[in-house]
Computed example of a mutant assay.
Amino acid sequence: MRAGFCARRLLIVDVLVNFWNKLQDKVMKRLSALLSALLFSASPAIADDFVYLECVTKSVTTTKDLKSNQITKKDETTVTTHFKVDLANSRVQSAKDSQWDETELVNGTYIIDEEWTVNGFTSSMKFSMQLVPPGRITGDGLSRNDSILESSTARGMCKEVVASVFEEALNQ
């Protein structure tokens, strides 16, 4: 019985990691174009067509056992992420992942609203980011199967920084 519980827990952890990786990938892929269009039009004096951002986000993730109706885990984290936005080519680079990602803009706001199912877990996420001027980030996600529900919220703010701040974060 204990081995089955451990295997099930590992599967759940794997699904949740995949959920957050997918969220992060979608955010990165869509952020670039939105930042590019909005910041380029709002900041005519940007040198070399690049904008550098520092975003501080607090997230809370709660895991609930649906059979016992008990919260089994609650994590709170605050993360600072740095971005380099290439306005000329509509792409963004995170200091955590030096790979460039291309994205699209939606009416001046960066928005993700999606649902998917993987390995028996149904997941959904909504994410938005205000960019003119750089500002509020909000994100909400749910992932569940018949026995577990994980909910996550993220709230934060971005501000424009100088290139050296991004470069320092990139080299860490």
Rank of each mutant, 00 (worst) to 15 (best):
R91L: 01
T122F: 08
A37Q: 15
N171T: 09
A88F: 01
C6A: 12
N21A: 12
D86E: 00
H82R: 06
E114D: 09
D86V: 01
L23R: 15
A47K: 07
S151K: 13
S98N: 14
L39R: 06
V60I: 13
A45E: 14
I12E: 11
E104T: 07
Q93V: 06
E167V: 04
K159R: 15
S43R: 04
T78N: 08
Q24F: 03
D65G: 04
N107H: 04
E160C: 04
S123H: 05
S68D: 02
T77N: 07
D113H: 11
M1T: 11
K84Y: 04
L31I: 06
I137R: 05
G4V: 07
K67A: 13
V118Y: 07
V132I: 06
V118E: 10
L23Y: 14
K126C: 15
T63K: 05
D86S: 01
L170A: 02
C158N: 02
R144K: 14
A3F: 05
V106M: 11
E114T: 06
A163W: 01
E160K: 15
Y110L: 14
G135R: 02
Q99C: 04
N145V: 03
L35C: 13
G139N: 09
T81C: 02
S143L: 00
N145G: 02
C55G: 02
L23V: 13
G135N: 02
R155N: 13
M28T: 15
S143Y: 04
S124K: 08
V106Q: 15
V56D: 15
V162R: 14
V161F: 07
A7G: 03
V118S: 14
M28I: 13
H82N: 08
S59E: 14
S94H: 00
L149P: 05
K58P: 00
G139T: 12
S123R: 08
W20I: 12
S143W: 02
C6M: 10
E76K: 09
F83H: 07
L16E: 04
W20G: 06
I111D: 00
G156V: 00
K126V: 15
V17K: 08
T63F: 03
V165N: 06
V13E: 12
L149Y: 04
G108A: 03
I112A: 07
I12Y: 05
V92K: 01
M28D: 14
A169P: 02
D75A: 03
L23G: 09
L87E: 11
L87V: 14
N89K: 11
C6N: 11
F19V: 05
G4M: 09
Q130W: 03
L142D: 13
T81F: 00
L39K: 01
E104Y: 05
M157G: 02
E114N: 04
L10S: 07
K73R: 12
W116N: 12
K159I: 15
I111T: 08
V118F: 12
F19A: 11
K22N: 11
V106L: 14
K64N: 03
A88Q: 10
Q172E: 13
N21E: 14
Q172L: 08
M125F: 07
A42K: 05
T122I: 09
